[in-house]
Measured scan of single mutants.
Amino acid sequence: SIKEIEKEEIIKVLKEVNFNKKLASEILGIPLRTLYKRLKEYGI
Rank of each mutant, 00 (worst) to 15 (best):
N20H: 06
K40T: 08
E6F: 08
I2C: 08
K37M: 13
F19Q: 05
I44G: 04
E26N: 09
K3F: 11
T34P: 02
G43S: 07
V17I: 04
V13G: 02
E9K: 15
K40P: 02
I11E: 07
K21L: 15
G43Y: 06
E9I: 14
P31H: 07
I30P: 00
N18W: 07
E26D: 10
K12C: 06
K21E: 06
T34M: 12
K22W: 10
E8W: 14
K22R: 13
Y36P: 01
R33Y: 11
I44M: 09
P31Q: 06
Y36D: 08
A24V: 05
I30G: 00
I30Y: 04
V13I: 12
I44Y: 10
E8N: 13
K12I: 05
N20S: 07
K40C: 08
I11L: 14
K12T: 08
L32Q: 03
E8Y: 13
I11C: 06
T34W: 07
K22L: 12
E6G: 12
T34Y: 09
G29F: 03
F19T: 02
R33D: 14
I5T: 13
L28S: 01
K40V: 12
G29L: 04
T34Q: 12
F19S: 04
R38C: 07
Y42V: 05
E6Q: 11
K12V: 05
E16Q: 15
K37S: 08
E8G: 10
K21Y: 15
K21D: 03
G43P: 03
K15G: 07
L23R: 14
G29K: 08
Y36S: 08
S1I: 11
K22Q: 12
K22Y: 10
L32R: 03
K15F: 11
Y36I: 15
T34G: 04
E8V: 10
E41V: 05
E9H: 14
L32F: 04
V13Q: 02
I10D: 01
E4F: 09
R33S: 13
N20F: 04
Y36F: 10
L23V: 08
R33M: 11
S1T: 14
A24G: 03
I30K: 01
E26P: 02
Y42G: 03
E4A: 10
K40R: 14
L35P: 00
E41L: 09
L23K: 13
I11M: 14
L28I: 05
K7Y: 11
I2F: 08
I10S: 02
N18E: 07
F19V: 01
S1Q: 13
G29E: 05
S1G: 14
K22C: 07
R38H: 11
I10N: 01
R33L: 12
P31Y: 03
R33C: 09
R33F: 09
I27P: 00
L14W: 04
I2A: 13
K3V: 11
V13E: 01
I11Q: 06
R33K: 14
E26S: 11
E6V: 08
I11G: 03
K40F: 11
L14M: 12
E16A: 15
L23H: 07
N20L: 03
E8Q: 14
G29S: 05
I44R: 05
